[in-house]
Nucleic acid binder design. Structure first.
Lengths: 182, 182
DNA sequence: AGTTAGTGCTTCGAAGTTGAAGCATGTGGA
DNA sequence: TCCACATGCTTCAACTTCGAAGCACTAACT
């Protein structure tokens, strides 16, 4: 992108510093994700999505509703239904109705699921340490954590959609469906 | 992650600081990607993969081979064939044989493709600015760019796969296929 | 209570992604 | 030259992902 357009896009150009930081951030994370994916597939034969789901369950005392799970991992509801089906068939989780809310499905991690996560964690940690943590000083780590925390909180605080895209002019009296299903 | 497990959780060596930084980094990037995806779909009706491909072409003077393209964006070859088919059908790129190597397919961005990228760029930049850049000071930006550059270079320098990791007796049987395309 | 709107999850169809296999071309050694 | 192997891309089948529609249950308002 050599920026040869006269001024039609220069309204909010990014300087090289900003652009470079954005690119390298995305690229580095993409590479890290890829390595993690490989490790999990090779060692435990599960995808990183499945690992995240199991890890989340293990961390939260073993039981969550589908919605809580989907919100934790950035994931669509229908996608979660699919993955939960796989995990259940593999005997790593079980699903049951919640006593509080008859609609809710309570997902519970099994012993086998816990064992799998436990067995996979060391290798996972090793990959993260080797690829991400090793080249960072304690100071870097603090900085990075601080910065990304601020960015994440900022994003979470952002309104889902300030203005509706021009795709559908929307109904007469329906401003926003508010259903933010990733 | 309350860390109440004595030592069975295998968190050997990742203190809360490290773990938290890793998590928030992945989560923030995931959220950013999601927002970018939405913007591109709403404004230009293309996926972020397609945008990346077009942007790469635009940046590299308009012409690359399929392999060069796939390597630039972290993407499978077969997936690129599929996407290139879509982009060609949409009139955003053309494909032709290379004069140097009869096997190679030379991908060229069209005027229409260039126009689309140019038109989409401001909105894209706006999203990145609003979500990522706004909550950062100049100092943060430098720090972040510096840190992630170091991490990325470190990853690129890593050997692909020196030795197969030892398997844990936890998961279902997996013969560990060492196929590494990407 | 009765009706209306909201919430939680699943099903369904369409589209995207991948690795392995296959085809065509290029390269290096006997 | 011939042959084996490497390289570049595509095809194929299986799998994953998503959004919209649908079902079941809950909450709110009258």
């Amino acid at each position: 992108m050599t920026g040869n357009h006269p001024d039609t896009d220069g309204t909010q150009g990014l300087d090289p510093q900003q652009l470079g930081t954005y690119f390298v951030l995305m690229e580095a994370v993409s590479l890290l994700q890829h390595h993690v994916e490989q490790q999990l597939r090779a060692e435990g034969d599960i995808s990183s999505v499945q690992f995240q789901l199991l890890a989340r369950l293990a961390a939260d005392d073993g039981q969550l509703t589908m919605t809580q799970l989907a919100d934790g991992v950035v994931y669509s509801r229908s996608g979660l239904t699919y993955q939960a089906g796989l995990l259940e068939k593999a005997g790593l989780i079980t699903r049951g109705s919640s006593p509080d809310d008859e609609r809710a499905t309570l997902v519970t991690i099994t012993e086998k699921g816990l064992a799998l996560v436990g067995g996979l964690l060391p290798g996972h940690i090793q990959v993260v340490r080797r690829l991400l943590l090793d080249p960072l000083t304690d100071d870097d780590l603090r900085q990075l954590g601080d910065i990304m925390t601020r960015v994440r909180d900022h994003m979470r605080a952002q309104p889902p959609r300030s203005a509706a895209p021009r795709k559908r002019p929307a109904g007469p009296t329906s401003p926003a469906p508010a259903t933010t299903q990733h």
